[in-house]
Design a protein around this nucleic acid. Structure first.
Length: 565
RNA sequence: UGACCCAUGGUGUAACGGUAGCACUACUGAUUUUGGUUCAGUCAGUUAAGGUUCGAAUCCUUAUGGGUCAACCA
């Protein structure tokens, strides 16, 4: 990563007092009361998919809290289901967290605690608080009742401690087939909370686990693993999303009856982003059905996708801070994410000139062989330095920067109209050259020698400044312009299938763009602002003889709005 | 016809019984060798009805709206 990008954290609220979110308030209360001396949080992904922008929010929250209040954050993989979890995901998750700029204290796995968890289960059985149930899955579901009617226990709940102990051990020893028996906590079949109706806490799965291999054929359920893992790690504030609110009762019950360290669970509403989908199922569908090229397709809301798209960790952290956390349903406009990208990139990105749809310009009164001009790398950064660019009598400008019959307020080139070429001269369009089909193929212009940038004595004032490249040394590059993947705000909540709302123009490839030669030196993670176009980064599949750039986000374009009026 | 969670401008988030604020968006204008940036400004909000109180976005009740819960998923 270049030096420019290692800028300090963006402080949107610098100089003001930022009010606390509800979790920070809880933490400050706990710290003030002496309940805890130090704060420990955890980020607990299940390694069965790639992380997305919603996870980024959670990561920033959990790590941000311990950075702010002291303490540390663990990375704990919630790997209690061997069927769906893979090492590949573990690696991508670690890469994403690191890329976002956070360091975990311990890399842990729920599977690290399988022995302890097994002991905990025995502890529960000994207290008469857990039993082996031989019922089939459907029977158990049926006996649980419904949200509006209570459940009832079956005869297996009456088994003795000794029998339960013996059966549980047999379960562990692989004496039974998948689904033949389960271990259930004995809580309350009349509870209005379905999760309290004797939840299953251990099930049989003769499956290979990505870490413990074939050591176990019984695996704890989420409810019997998560809270205990928190407790084992002395997590003080266990933060999760709102759908786990009903689980808190189980979480607390288990901690209380196991008599272990009392971690506490706090819930916030997951952040939804407009114009995209976030569920693992839908994301997977997009990948599998080829609507995108992979999990890291630049149009995906995954962290790897955003990274490939050119988003910086700083911009994503800034985004997470700005949207904050709360308990209510929300849909954050993707426009805010884009704003955060521009905000950082404006300060960090090197300015370069690239013409996407070239139109040849010949400077008819330019006599010399050519000359070298100075161009600043970033007007927002005084230390950004300059580069040299070459000028000659043959240039290319953007086709859309010329109109034969311009509307009012069109500040660009038109017959008889003058514009400045950025870092160079003011030119005037004298003649339009067309081919037989009537297409404009060339502009003959004259320049004003005394109007050179930095030494302008011409006194001419122009309204427009254009980017351009020198025909003599420009390089052909490919540009991938990405737009929102979905045309509607909430594809999942809209009528019919979410795939109906896929934006057919979410990717526009331009293989014939012309770039100034400095771009030949671009490397991965470089960020550029292509003047008047937007922010771009080098695509990972780019090669020396075929440079490819991905558009991160466009510049604000008030002319686009104006011209639509 | 249950339980639980939630409700502040278009969006996100503050105000902790005492002036409804901030950011994004949108719109004006100024500056500008990027129609970018920057700067100044404008529009715009407490779901509803009762109650408590000198005073309610905040506390209470009810209604309404939204979300979650009946996986051997997490």
């Amino acid at each position: 990563m270049s030096e420019d990008l290692k800028s300090k954290e963006i402080q949107p609220t610098e100089g003001q007092e930022k009010s606390l979110n509800f979790i920070e308030e809880i933490i400050e209360t706990d710290l003030a009361s002496g309940k805890y001396k130090t704060i420990i949080t955890r980020f607990p992904p299940e390694p069965n998919g790639y992380l997305h922008i919603g996870h980024a929010s959670s990561i920033c929250l959990n790590f941000g809290l311990t950075l702010k209040y002291g303490g540390y954050t663990n990375l704990r993989f919630d790997d209690t289901n061997p069927i769906t979890e893979e090492t590949e995901y573990v690696e991508s998750i670690k890469e994403d967290v690191r890329w976002l700029g956070f360091e975990w204290k311990h890399e842990l796995y729920a599977s690290d605690y399988f022995d302890t968890l097994y002991e905990y289960a025995i502890r529960l059985i000994n207290k008469g608080l857990a039993y082996i149930d031989d019922s089939a899955s459907e029977e158990i579901a049926e006996q649980k009742g419904t949200p509006t009617s209570v459940g009832h226990r079956n005869q297996f709940a009456e088994r003795s401690v000794e029998e339960n102990l013996r059966l549980f051990e047999a379960m562990k020893d692989g004496k039974y087939k998948d689904g033949e028996k389960v271990l259930r906590a004995k809580i309350d079949m009349n509870s209005p909370n379905m999760l309290m109706r004797d939840p299953i806490i251990y099930r049989i799965k003769h499956a290979h686990h990505h870490r413990t291999g074939d050591k176990w054929c019984i695996y704890p359920m989420y409810d019997f693993a998560h809270g205990q893992s928190d407790s084992i790690e002395n997590i003080t504030h266990s933060i999760c999303t709102m759908e786990f609110v009903p689980h808190r009762e189980v979480y607390d019950w288990l901690i209380h009856n196991l008599e272990i360290f009392p971690s506490h669970q706090y819930e916030f509403a997951r952040r939804n982003l407009s114009h995209t989908v976030m569920s693992k199922r839908r994301l997977l569908q997009l990948v599998n059905e080829g609507h995108v090229t992979g999990w890291d397709d630049p149009r995906m809301p995954t962290i790897s996708g955003l990274r490939r798209r050119g988003y910086t960790p700083e911009s994503i952290r800034d985004f997470a801070n700005r949207i904050g956390i709360a308990k209510r349903e929300n849909t954050v406009d993707v426009g805010l994410l884009e704003f955060c990208a521009r905000e950082h990139l404006n300060k960090a990105a090197l300015r370069r000139m690239v013409v996407f749809d070239p139109l040849k310009v010949v400077i008819t009164n330019y006599a010399g062989e050519g000359e070298t001009l100075r161009a600043e790398n970033n007007p927002e950064n005084p230390n950004g330095g300059e580069r040299e660019i070459s000028f000659s009598n043959e240039l290319y400008i953007e086709h859309e920067d010329f109109m034969e019959e311009p509307p009012k307020k069109y500040f660009r080139l038109a017959p008889g109209q003058m514009v400045r070429l950025k870092y160079a001269y003011i030119i005037k369009c004298d003649e339009v050259v067309k081919d037989n089909a009537g297409n404009i193929v060339q502009l003959n212009c004259s320049h004003f020698p005394e109007s050179r940038s930095g030494a302008d004595t011409s006194g001419i004032k122009v309204k427009g400044t254009l980017h351009w490249v020198n025909a003599k040394d420009c390089v052909k590059v490919q540009v991938n312009e990405y737009d929102r993947l979905f045309g509607v705000e909430d594809p999942s909540g809209s009528e019919g299938d979410f795939r109906n709302y896929i934006n057919p123009d979410s990717l526009q490839v331009d293989e014939n763009a012309l770039a100034e030669p400095a771009l030949k030196d671009a490397v991965i993670n470089d960020r550029f602002q292509f003047l008047r176009k937007g922010y771009f980064t080098l695509e990972k599949d780019s090669a020396a003889d075929k440079l490819i750039f991905n558009k991160t986000v466009g510049l604000k374009d008030s002319w686009a709005k104006e011209s639509k009026k």
